[in-house]
Design a protein around this nucleic acid. Structure first.
Lengths: 192, 192
DNA sequence: CCTCGATGAGACATTCATGTCTCACATGGT
DNA sequence: ACCATGTGAGACATGAATGTCTCATCGAGG
């Protein structure tokens, strides 16, 4: 039998389809179900067999994105070392998922009042708590709220992912661009 | 006659319709032509009389956005005073157009290879040149490229506009959030 | 008061993405 | 060799947004 149980683990096929869908939709968020299928190298009918519809596909992508982001949060060990080191680890861990996250953030903006996936709230809380902790330690300035720093983090990750995608900045600078801007800003500090 | 010449100035009606369309589409970028019409307090047929179709409407919005952004660039007098002061003026001048700009930036991402409006290139060049000048003056750090700083500026403006819209941050903090993060970053500097 | 122009409402055709279904085919397991 | 399951391709219905058209109405200007 080629299918295993649906649960914490998913079928290899499903996983691969989801990956290629993420790659495509990160570039072209309005891609058709047919385009998604072609990109995955399968027929549209088969795509519909895996995912009931576009909504189901997007929800699956959302789960994947949340899962990857939370894995990045784990891998970053946000409570170890200085906040700066932790942030560098987080951005590094998040880089492979940046395109998908950018897509999902934009996608979530469309559902105005509707309830957002609880996973996002969990992730938001962890990021926000990280910034608050850094403030309490005296490592982050306190005139920028944790909520704004969290949003700015998402925004910069998305902007960087898109800028790389569009060829406007070098892919190898991804982490440096985000971390340096987020931490130190554009101003050239005196002691530097 | 209720119509004046179409040219540099547009009909008051047209202008107002465009404004309300900008306001609506900034919040809900997928709004229908019918919704746009209702929001403007006119019928769908009338909307089509003003703008041949959705594409024409978006193009008109793009022109409006570019015009407002270039006006903000003018008003900011980017070559007067320190780069920091100039950036503060720019963000202040851009605030009223932030929602529209955010919409247009996201919209432009959908037209991958297609040629972008030349107005954007002009504006991009001015912003990019501003950052480069600041680097040459020693006011901005040189390890972040002008291209990235330009993209980050757009991204942060859009993120801030959306965060305010979503009620996650206070509207009155708009300028401070963007300018401080963009200039100084989140790190608490020693001399502060 | 009358006329012209713009409008709103609605009918209508068209296009496109979606979702469902059928059928022939191939591949893998028995 | 046989059978079953998954698959691709295509036909088909559906719904939604778009674009076009007509017509009755309203209002301003002559």
């Amino acid at each position: 039998m080629s299918h295993m149980v649906y649960g914490r683990l998913m079928t290899l096929d499903r996983e691969q389809v989801l990956r290629s869908a993420a790659a495509l939709l990160s570039r072209k968020s309005t891609a058709t179900m047919d385009e998604v299928a072609r990109a995955a190298g399968i027929g549209r009918a088969t795509l519909h067999r895996h995912f009931a519809g576009r909504d189901a596909l997007v929800k699956a992508l959302e789960s994947l994105g949340i899962q990857e982001f939370e894995a990045a949060l784990d891998a970053a060990r946000l409570d170890e070392g200085t906040s700066e080191e932790a942030l560098r680890r987080l951005i590094a861990a998040v880089e492979p998922s940046a395109g998908l996250m950018s897509f999902l953030v934009n996608e979530n903006q469309l559902f105005e009042g509707d309830e957002v996936d609880e996973g996002w709230n969990r992730a938001d809380a962890r990021v926000s708590a990280f910034f608050r902790r850094g403030q309490e330690r005296g490592e982050f300035r306190i005139d920028l709220t944790p909520a704004w720093l969290t949003e700015a983090l998402y925004g910069l990750v998305g902007t960087a992912a898109w800028s790389v995608q569009a060829g406007r900045v070098a892919a190898q600078d991804f982490q440096h661009m985000i971390v340096e801007l987020l931490l130190g800003g554009a101003r050239r500090s005196v002691e530097q």
